[in-house]
Amino acid sequence: MTLAALLVQLAGIWVWIGVAVAVVFLTIGVGRIDEDARGAYVFRPLVAPGVILIWPIVLWRWWLLETGRDAWPLRHRPQRRFHGRAWMVMAVAVPLIFIAAMLARQSQSDLTAPVLLSPPQEVSE
């Protein structure tokens, strides 16, 4: 099996586990941990693709909320320093990527001029 085939297969497994988690979470779990979701059903199919995509995080958050381990002060502490640092890296990375890619462009004039091939001559017997 090639690496590409393996990745595609793993993606399929990820999705099927996600579907199972979404079914259980959106029918049983969400109402238990969020009062705003009780009696609200129309929004659930809308969030189902998100559950399928990030099901490990969903299971982790569900466990924290079910067991009362959620730390409320963290909810009010944004990671405010991350933006600045991330964009200092981006300020280098984005121009670097763009300029490097432009330098890698091939000049059309450097290419060998195309030659029109003539058909093979018929051989007379």
Partner: peptide, 8 residues
């Protein structure tokens, strides 16, 4: 829902 569930 995601903001509340995951926390900001």
């Amino acid at each position: 829902f995601w903001l509340k569930f995951l926390t900001p």
